[in-house]
């Protein structure tokens, strides 16, 4: 037997102890929340100190009240915006991943398609809305298309980049084992691309709501959150304008956080030393007691 076993020196935070969980929550949730509170306080301070007229800027409380008091009207509109955001994001992510993979695997297609992709992002998105309405009507579809249009690009660029930087020695090792290419792709190349993929998804997530709102502005015939805000603006209901903006922001942040959560869940190795216990069902009795 080897006499050369040395004690492990885990370089990262080991399994969380109760204290560290509290501290982690404080750091990861408390501090960002504090920055939002400070922002609201700044808003309040400016409005009060400079005696800003309510039709120019309401106090935060009035903006929040404008939302809560009209919640029954707003709620279906919020749901609509969320639906456009989520559908568009999923479509854009799927398209982005697909294009990234195809372009990485077929270099000719990469040279052929890349300029078109860049071109697609150079088109002002507002200018895109009118033809989309002509083609797709005033349904949910044009909004979904606009969101997907915005989301797919960072995803494609990052997936393409990630796939072309997979360690070729690792791919060769799989070849030496006699692995078929599709298994190498699924087991090596895809997980190796997880980090850039999620970078692309996070960028896409921040823009997704913006895309949905642009779509609602340009391609709505009836009720939508964007039109609600426009009506409030015409009626000089400034509190509702600010309130709706806050609502849109909250939708955007929530979606971004959801994607961050998915990343944390999908890439445990980036912040853990030891695998989660439940990951494997077959924990057999020959596992040594610790």
């Amino acid at each position: 037997m080897s006499g050369f076993v040395r004690p492990a020196a885990p370089r990262r935070r080991d399994r969380a102890t109760p204290e560290s969980v509290t501290r982690k929550v404080a750091r990861n949730v408390g501090v960002p929340l504090l920055s939002i509170v400070l922002l609201l306080a700044l808003w309040q301070g400016i409005v009060v100190y400079f005696h800003v007229a309510p039709y120019i800027a309401p106090r935060p409380r009035q903006a929040v009240l404008a939302v809560t008091q009209n919640w029954s009207t707003l709620w279906p509109l919020v749901l609509g915006t969320i639906r456009e955001t989520v559908y568009g994001f999923i479509a854009g992510a799927a398209l982005g991943i697909g294009l990234g993979v195809i372009m990485a695997k077929v270099p000719v297609l990469q040279r052929l398609v890349y300029p078109v992709l860049v071109l697609s992002q150079a088109v002002p998105i507002i200018a895109l809305a009118a033809p989309l309405v002509l083609i797709l009507g005033f349904s949910v579809t044009p909004k979904v298309v606009i969101v997907a249009w915005i989301v797919f690009f960072p995803v494609t660029v990052n997936v393409l980049d990630g796939l072309s930087h997979v360690d070729q020695d690792l791919v060769n090792l799989a070849r030496v084992y006699g692995a078929p290419r599709w298994r190498t792709f699924i087991q090596i190349e895809i997980p190796a691309t997880a980090t850039p993929l999620f970078s692309g998804l996070k960028i896409g997530a921040t823009y997704a709501v913006t895309g949905a709102i642009i779509g609602e502005l340009a391609a709505s015939d009836g009720s939508s959150l964007a039109l609600y805000q426009e009506h409030a603006n015409t009626n000089l209901n400034t509190a509702a304008v600010y309130g709706t903006t806050m609502l849109m922001t909250v939708i955007g942040i929530s979606w971004f956080l959801l994607v961050v959560g998915a990343e944390v869940f999908a890439t445990p190795w980036q912040r853990r030393t030891v695998a989660r216990r439940w990951r494997r069902g077959d924990r057999s009795e020959d596992e040594p007691a610790r």
Partner: peptide, 14 residues
């Protein structure tokens, strides 16, 4: 001599 590290990710190893 690596029995204790079966469930560790490689980043934890020397």
């Amino acid at each position: 001599g690596l029995g204790e590290f079966l469930r560790h990710y490689p980043s934890a190893l020397s």
